[in-house]
Amino acid sequence: MEENLRNNLIDKLQNNTISSEEREELFKLYNSYQFSKEWNENTMGNFEDVRKKILKGVKLKRNGASRGKIYAINSFLRIAAACLLVFFTGWLGYTLILKPDPNVIVESGKSRKEVVLPDGSKITMNINSTLTYPRVFEAKRREVKFEGEGFFEIQADRSHPFIVATPHVKVRVLGTAFNLKAYKEDPAIETSLIHGKVEVLTAKEERTLSILTPNHKFVVDKIALITSHLPQTKSQIEVVPMEFIDPSNTAPVDLAWKEGKFAFASSPFQDIAREMKRRYAVDIIFENKEAADFKYTASFEQEDVVDILDALQLVKPFKYRKEGNKIVVY
């Protein structure tokens, strides 16, 4: 049976009609010891010629298989690269577009705004103020960035101090309520403590400027912060008692804005004018330089700019005129 198969395969090989599978079968028979011993060159042809024909076919097939494998590998790599590109594009889109920013930025604009932080602390922002805070407090301390004016009611957590960072100072607290006024355009920074305890430090936290007790206000000139370690600038860093707008001392002047009031105590006219610009969007220009230093104490609720100026005129006289969106004091 095997001899008939062998002879049949050799005939097909000689006539070039052998299939790939049959060529493989003949190759196996050719390699057997018995096959080589029983070779009959008269009927089966020259042994070496047949061997070369068999091997040539087998090599061609194997080379073809290799090319197929290489093609398959290349195709796989192309598909893998395409999948990787799709994944990377999706990841990049998620990172740049869909992934939320780790920080929240709140701007109050022209109205007051209340914000509750992740730890439950509450901040009431005055007009034209900006607050930046993390969505989650993950570090050993809770830190926010602030510019403008705000009233802070901080949840107590001794193991995680609360830090309010402004461009010029930092305020560190554990659990307290205080007012911070740090507008970019103002020459000074004010911190008024209602209850609890706060520490006011330089922006890089290398020096403590003051430790406040309740009903006291810390005032520092921004320029003085640069040389706050020098004796001659000590007078520009003050801690003074808070002023109140009621006889019972229950309504601090520094918190009047929370109730929608416009109040000030022993404030120079030029400081009042700066507050009026924020509140009423009006520029007050002093041609009368002496009037800029007039000091006033008053509280207003629904009055407009003209009502306020007329009331101030009754305390210390000055004249003014309106020029479009400007008021000139002369």
Score class of each variant (00 low, 15 high):
I10C: 05
L13A: 10
E21G: 02
F35Y: 12
E38R: 11
N40G: 03
N42G: 05
T43G: 01
T43A: 11
D49E: 14
R51D: 06
I54W: 04
V58S: 01
V58M: 09
K69G: 01
I73N: 05
A81P: 06
V86K: 04
L92C: 07
Y94I: 04
L98F: 13
P100S: 08
N103W: 13
K110H: 11
K110P: 00
K110E: 13
S111C: 00
R112E: 05
K113M: 09
L117H: 03
G120Y: 02
S121Y: 02
I123L: 12
N128V: 00
S129Y: 01
T130I: 11
P134W: 05
F137V: 02
E143N: 05
V144P: 03
V144T: 02
K145H: 09
E149V: 06
G150M: 03
I154Q: 08
S159N: 12
P161G: 11
A165E: 15
P167G: 10
H168P: 06
R172H: 10
A182E: 04
Y183A: 10
E185W: 05
H195Y: 14
V198R: 08
V200G: 04
T202I: 03
I211F: 00
T213K: 13
F218V: 02
K222P: 02
I226K: 10
H229W: 06
T233H: 03
V240H: 00
M242R: 01
F244S: 06
P247Q: 10
S248F: 09
V253R: 12
L255G: 06
K261R: 15
F262H: 11
A263W: 07
A265D: 14
P268D: 12
F269C: 13
A273N: 12
E275M: 14
R278E: 08
A281P: 01
A281H: 15
V282K: 14
V282W: 13
A292D: 09
T297Q: 10
T297P: 11
E301H: 12
V305E: 09
V305Y: 08
D307F: 13
L309Q: 05
D310E: 14
Q313S: 03
K319M: 02
R321L: 03
E323F: 01
G324S: 04
I327P: 02
